[in-house]
């Protein structure tokens, strides 16, 4: 699992690559949170999931956790490019109502 981030204008982009599960989530959490803490001037964070090859409900918990953190900073959260498998569990768990898909 790899987490990379980039700032463009007032948007923070977080790119996740790999398999997001119980084993990889703590590192992803730490890296995403560091990126968010460094970008508190941004108005929104966009999580790009194109590189996520596998994700289970631990990944949903991870995304909801980041959503709550971003909320405390007054930042909105969006998701982009989930693969069809990730899209299926994201839809099932209703997270798109909190963090819309771009």
């Amino acid at each position: 699992m790899r987490t990379q981030s980039a700032r463009m204008g007032d948007s923070l982009y977080i790119y996740l690559t790999g398999e997001l599960d119980e084993c990889t989530v703590s590192r992803a959490r730490e890296e995403a949170d560091n990126a968010i803490d460094r970008s508190t001037g941004c108005s929104r964070a966009i999580f790009n999931l194109a590189g996520v090859r596998f994700m289970d409900s631990t990944g949903i918990g991870f995304l909801i956790g980041r959503y709550k953190k971003l909320q405390r900073y007054g930042m909105r959260m969006y998701l982009e490019n989930p693969n069809p498998d990730a899209d299926k569990i994201l839809s099932l768990s209703g997270v798109y109502s909190l963090m819309p898909k771009l």
Partner: peptide
């Protein structure tokens, strides 16, 4: 408190 989604069994069932 651990960022658990509570969706595990629902996903298995679905």
């Amino acid at each position: 408190d651990e960022e658990r989604s509570g969706m595990g069994f629902t996903i298995m069932q679905t």
